[in-house]
Amino acid sequence: MSDSLPAPNTSHLRAIEALYSGHHGWLYATLKRKLGNAMDAADLAQDTFTRILASQVTVIDQPRAYLTCVAKGILVNWYQRKALERAYLEALASVPAHEVPSPQAHFIVLETLHEIDAMLDALPPLVKRAFLLSQLHGLQYQAIAEQLGVSLITIKRYMKQAFMQCLMRVE
């Protein structure tokens, strides 16, 4: 069985083709103005249309409003990804030169950080907070419960939910 997207129907393809031909230039120019970078703008415009193609939407009443909404979501993800990369590079700057990872290891670490970030973003806010307090700050479940103002059993449920999310990502 293939992991590819389902084949879009003909009406969907026509709708996306019309959307692309009618508004790609506008979206690209808008993103280029916002980012100040033609290559990133082209990539994000392409990502926007790819996401719309995958969505199977066939009727779009207000194309520019719809494109703006989809592009904003992609842009937010892009900014988060860039912030994560900057934080990693800043941390890496303090590492002795002989311990700096190879370019391949660097790429793998960044991809892993993005996957972890996406997994954490999929969690409800309190679950994410409990998980981070446990895993990054080393707090015991009781201390987390007190800090978040919830019961110990709730923290145990939160942690189970977070670990299940981690396991689903691994498989």
Rank of each mutant, 00 (worst) to 15 (best):
K34C: 02
R81W: 00
L136H: 11
H114N: 05
H23W: 06
M164C: 08
A162V: 11
G73P: 00
D61P: 02
Q165R: 15
I153L: 08
L67M: 06
F49H: 03
Q80A: 01
G73D: 09
G25Y: 03
Q165P: 00
L152V: 04
L44A: 04
I16G: 07
L19I: 08
A83N: 04
T30E: 09
L44P: 03
H114S: 09
K156W: 08
L13N: 12
A42Q: 13
L133T: 01
T58G: 03
H106T: 13
A145C: 10
R81A: 11
S151N: 08
Q56F: 14
A145Q: 10
L123P: 04
L53W: 13
L152H: 12
H24W: 07
P63M: 10
A54K: 15
M159L: 15
T50Y: 06
Q80P: 02
S21R: 15
Y66I: 03
I116H: 04
L27D: 02
A29R: 12
L89M: 10
F49G: 00
G73R: 10
I153W: 03
T58D: 12
F107C: 05
L67K: 06
V70A: 07
I155N: 09
L13G: 04
R33T: 14
G73A: 07
E17T: 13
I153R: 15
K82R: 13
F107N: 09
V59F: 11
A41R: 02
T48P: 01
P124N: 03
G149Q: 08
R64E: 10
L44G: 06
T50W: 07
L5G: 09
A97G: 05
T58P: 01
Q80R: 13
K32I: 00
V76M: 01
A83S: 10
L132Q: 14
V59L: 08
D43M: 03
L67S: 06
I155A: 00
H98F: 13
E171H: 14
A15C: 09
S4P: 00
R64W: 01
A71W: 03
A71F: 04
P101D: 09
R86N: 11
Q140W: 04
R51L: 09
A162G: 11
A87W: 03
H137Y: 12
V76Y: 00
I116L: 13
R169K: 12
S11P: 01
E146K: 08
L67A: 05
M164L: 12
Q165N: 13
G149D: 10
D61G: 15
K160E: 15
P125Q: 14
L113N: 06
V150R: 06
E85G: 00
L132E: 14
P125H: 11
W26E: 04
L35I: 04
M1N: 07
G36Q: 07
P6E: 09
Q104D: 15
L27H: 07
L31Y: 05
V109Q: 13
K34Q: 13
L136W: 09
K32M: 06
D40P: 02
L110K: 11
L35S: 06
S102V: 11
T154P: 05
A118G: 10
